[in-house]
Computed example of a mutant assay.
Amino acid sequence: MTRRSLREQATSAQVHAPASASTPRAGEPRRGVGGMLGDVVLWIAALGGVVCIVLVVLALTAQITLIMFSTGSMSPTIPAGSVAVVQRVPASDIRVGDVVTVDRVDELPITHRITSVSEGASAEERVITMRGDANASDDPFPYTVTSVRTVLFAVPGIATLIVAMGDPVVLGGITVAAALLVVWAFWPRSPASRRTMGSS
């Protein structure tokens, strides 16, 4: 047997050898759009869970919370419908020009810009006047505070979404959808389906 015939036999064996199981075949179905969409939704849900955990940790450790603006008294700096991230700080740390939220007894908190700060009855106490950026004059009365929530930053237009998320119907729908998504993601698949997904 000559060298030429040996080379021809080797080439013929390679041509007729069956394709490897790990090599994708032409025309094999790839993972469907539903599978990819499910992955995206799972990632979004996971990200939302992480954000909620981070917010809880920040609220407990750094006293960082959220407030919503239902009026436009701080426009255009913070328009109505915005959500602000605020942090509670001692009154001794505040300065003129800071935007802060003051808690009021039997009334809703108010968030305006500080226009003056003076000493209070104790070292921890301050008496402040405030004014909304959209207002022509200061608030009618000064506020005596030992701590305030200072605005770190605000995101316009998402207050409506957060309010809707607190609706029992919306919460129930989200819970049911999340449960169905988890069941779908971990539901046992047939061997043929697993082979199809593995070959894609």
Rank of each mutant, 00 (worst) to 15 (best):
M1T: 09
T2L: 06
T2W: 01
T2R: 13
R3I: 06
R4E: 11
L6N: 06
L6T: 12
E8H: 10
Q9E: 12
Q9L: 12
S12H: 09
A13M: 13
A13F: 04
Q14H: 08
Q14M: 13
P18T: 06
A19D: 11
S20F: 13
A21G: 14
P24H: 06
P24T: 04
P24M: 02
A26H: 10
E28F: 08
P29M: 05
P29A: 06
R31T: 08
V33S: 07
G34K: 03
D39V: 07
V41T: 11
V41N: 02
L42R: 04
W43L: 13
I44F: 15
I44H: 05
A45D: 10
G49D: 03
V54Q: 03
V56Q: 07
V57R: 08
V57I: 15
A59R: 13
A59M: 11
L60N: 09
L60G: 05
T61F: 11
A62W: 00
Q63T: 09
Q63R: 15
T65P: 00
M68N: 10
F69S: 03
S70N: 11
T71G: 06
S75D: 15
P76T: 01
T77M: 05
I78C: 04
I78A: 04
P79Q: 09
A80S: 15
G81Q: 09
S82V: 04
V83M: 06
A84P: 00
V86F: 05
V89E: 04
D93V: 07
I94G: 02
R95Q: 14
V96P: 05
G97I: 08
V102N: 04
V102F: 01
D103Y: 12
D103N: 12
D103C: 01
V105A: 14
D106T: 06
P109A: 01
I110Q: 03
T111N: 03
H112A: 04
S116I: 00
V117P: 01
G120R: 01
S122Y: 05
S122I: 02
E125W: 02
T129Q: 14
D133Q: 04
A134W: 09
A134R: 09
A134Q: 08
S137H: 07
S137G: 07
F141D: 10
Y143T: 01
V145Q: 05
S147T: 09
R149E: 10
T150V: 15
L152H: 03
V155M: 14
A159M: 07
V163W: 09
D167A: 06
V170Q: 04
G172M: 05
G172K: 01
I174A: 15
T175G: 13
T175L: 14
V176N: 07
A178S: 07
A178R: 00
V183R: 06
W184L: 12
W184T: 10
A185T: 14
F186R: 11
F186W: 13
W187G: 00
P188I: 09
R189E: 14
R189N: 04
R195G: 08
T196W: 01
M197T: 03
M197K: 12
S200H: 10
